[in-house]
Amino acid sequence: MREVILKTTQLSKRYGNFTALDNADMTVYRGDIYGLIGRNGAGKTTVMKIVTGLTEQSSGEYEIFGKTGKAAENEKRKIGCLIENPAFFGNLTAYQNLRYYCYQKGITDLKQIEEALKLVQLSDVGNKKFRKFSLGMKQRLGIAFAVMDNPDLIILDEPINGLDPIGISELRDTFRRLNAERGITIVISSHILSELYAVATRFLIIDNGKVLKEVTKQELDLECSRCIVLKTNDTKRAATLIENKLNISDYKVIDSGEIRIYDESAKPDEIGRTLIQNDVTVSGIFESGVSLEDYFKQLVGEAQS
């Protein structure tokens, strides 16, 4: 069984009458690249701020490396973070800023600074002060800060904001490398679905403070891939017929009223005819296939209606 690194249970945050986060449940396993997808103001940053201690939850709880409450505080040493904008001292260089945090965290191995700067391609910025950095450079320094001290988990809030396409691509490679080579679990948020899709292995879709869905990449692919959607009130019998009469095995029973058939050779009219001939009521059969964006819009739409 995979180790749970971070888990939230019924986590909520309210500001007066406004609910920024509404009973959010999420589970991050060791080795995940966990993507938080949501529009601006969806509640992504709020989740991150709660679990990193920047704000207190109104209700619910979270667990870090299996610890809750005060015990979880100590576990935060194993976490590297970049929440909202990268914030460093404008009058210090990249090296000096990281040196400052080395003092603070009690890191004596200063090679880690060089390594972190090299990882984000900032080792050649020399004496340039942080205030003169471009937004992309600032983001990269934020990531260097997060990965310093070899954390087990890094939490990155919108880390690709302000980066150019090449920078985004490089960062994507960096995340994959950190995940694969160092075994670092990554929680990353973005409102750019395609970018998150390209790097994450599991997803939490959130909107208006509510968790809409938690899915693996495989499940998401399945949800978005081309398929035949069959609506019937007897999914059990329909599934038997699909398998035995039509020899289709690549299908999935979604719920009590829907079956999705992914077999590319399957034909909707043939399936419909077979089911009707065998007295199975078919209330609808159609081909489907949605983009990630459409899938997200669909989920958000369902939640709002």
């Binding site: 201690g53 920047l54 935060k76 976490i79 973070c81 914030a87 460093f88 939490i155």
Partner: peptide, 11 residues
């Protein structure tokens, strides 16, 4: 400068 975030998220 919001650099306090870096400190408070560092255990």
């Amino acid at each position: 400068g919001s650099s306090i975030k870096n400190t408070l998220t560092s255990a």
